[in-house]
Design a binder for these strands. Structure first.
Lengths: 119, 119
DNA sequence: CCGGATCCAAGCCGATACTG
DNA sequence: CAGTATCGGCTTGGATCCGG
């Protein structure tokens, strides 16, 4: 694992960031913010199956990491908008690149699984 | 999310594969198999903190996906060796690439977190 | 409209003990 | 040596109700 361990405890940081990529909701949310600014309710409808709770938690974490911004417009009704930061955009690009691997090899992988399960 | 949704249900497959990357143990195990063939006990010692149970489960899943091979040498004492398949190697390359993003931006991310938590 | 707070079920994961 | 089996704690995530 040397390539992922420049020094000893950087490893935890890197793994923590990779875990972000592995999180289903994070990826979907980031994907939906690719080019636009999106409101909370809009995301709630767009990301199929996410609960309000999980959407809030996911957005908070991504905001904490500086991957997106949260802007509250004081008004009635309330209006909260989310958008990717430049940092978030670079991450999205990298994730899409890795997603390319998944798209390329997904048939191979599911084929392997079926063969393994059949055996 | 169009780039990750070539068609409707491919999305689940791709997300499932991305989840693999998010799995701490999978990444560490794959990393240790980069260039060598490794025995079970050797992995157990190399991957710090992993339990026997988790190592077995992780290896089984990676084998199921066709990312590594498991070869049993009938002998006493038993001897089981694990090695990356070509498919596994291509995944490792992609993961290392994404790990590059994490290494590049990790200070920025943890800085953001500290600022957020401080506020 | 946005999201915090609470309750509760499901599943993960480590520790431990036991087999071929 | 390389696992499997079982148990118990703990996290995770959905549902629901409530507040700004």
């Amino acid at each position: 694992m040397d390539a992922l361990e420049p020094d000893e405890d950087a490893c935890r940081e890197v793994l923590g960031i990779l875990a972000l990529i592995g999180d289903k909701w994070s990826v979907l949310v980031i994907g939906h913010l690719r080019d636009r600014t999106v409101r909370f309710g809009e995301l709630h409808r767009a990301v199929t199956g996410i609960s309000q709770r999980m959407l809030t938690r996911t957005l908070r974490q991504l905001e904490r990491d500086g991957l997106l911004t949260r802007t509250v417009h004081a008004a009635v009704p309330p209006r909260v908008e989310y958008a990717l930061t430049p940092l978030g955009t670079t991450l999205l690009d990298s994730v899409v690149a890795l997603g390319g691997w998944a798209v390329e090899h997904r048939h191979e992988v599911v084929g392997n699984r079926r063969r393994y399960d059949g055996t």
